[in-house]
Amino acid sequence: MTTTSWNHSSRLYAVLAVCLLLAAAVAPAAAVSVGETDVPDSAAVGSEVSVTIQLTELYREPSLEEWELAGSTELENPTWTVVFFDQTGSKIGQESFGGQEFSGATVAASDDIDQIEVQLRGTVPSVTEYTYDPHQRFTAATLEQVPPGGGSNELASEEVPYFTEDSQSARSALDAAASAIENAGNPNEASSTFDLAVNAYESGNFDNARQLAQEAQNQAERAQQQDNRNQLILMGVGALLVVGLVAGGFLYWRSQQDSNDRLG
């Protein structure tokens, strides 16, 4: 019985070891790698933003001598600029594209291209769907590698949280409410009001969301005050109990003494 179970487990260990070895062998086989990227942390709707993505290790995994770079974005009125560098880091060429999608920037080893920098400028689009958690985002840039035979590999995809003035103020109200609720130990009433506020936010009803968030925050604070008060009352009762016990004990002790027995 014991030997079989040992056999089982040893086999398991063997399988695990093999898996680990395989993983170690596969891991270095990375595709085209993304170097420095410059993407804004968040962006207001209607503002102009720029995104920069560097690509290196251009001809590994799959080892292609030549391929085409394609890209897409949700930014409006975008301008794509693809800049090529050689191994010494000197710029050797540049191509520009318009439109939310571009393709056809040829990357070939024979052209001495060793690094690519994709620069993109455009206007942040209006929000299609609001989500509180995670923050609603738009795709600022997606880069793909198109091999000569067709098909595509995604190289990079950058998403940026975006907002309007209204949504941002509603969101900060929601954030404040959330932290108040957490501090108060997640009271039920405040949590459900908070859920309603999130719903209102997600359906774009920001005034309502703000109000609900404010209310949730108030409820949470009230709950916390109540909690504090209860705790205080409990402590008071406890203290009274202790005092009572001590006094009672003392009186009992004194009553046990014979000192006030007139006949004692």
């Binding site: 009553s255 014979d258 027995d261 007139r262 006949l263 004692g264």
Partner: peptide, 9 residues
């Protein structure tokens, strides 16, 4: 009468 005393005297 002395209530509670432990003695009779």
């Amino acid at each position: 009468p002395v209530r509670g005393s432990g003695f009779v005297a």
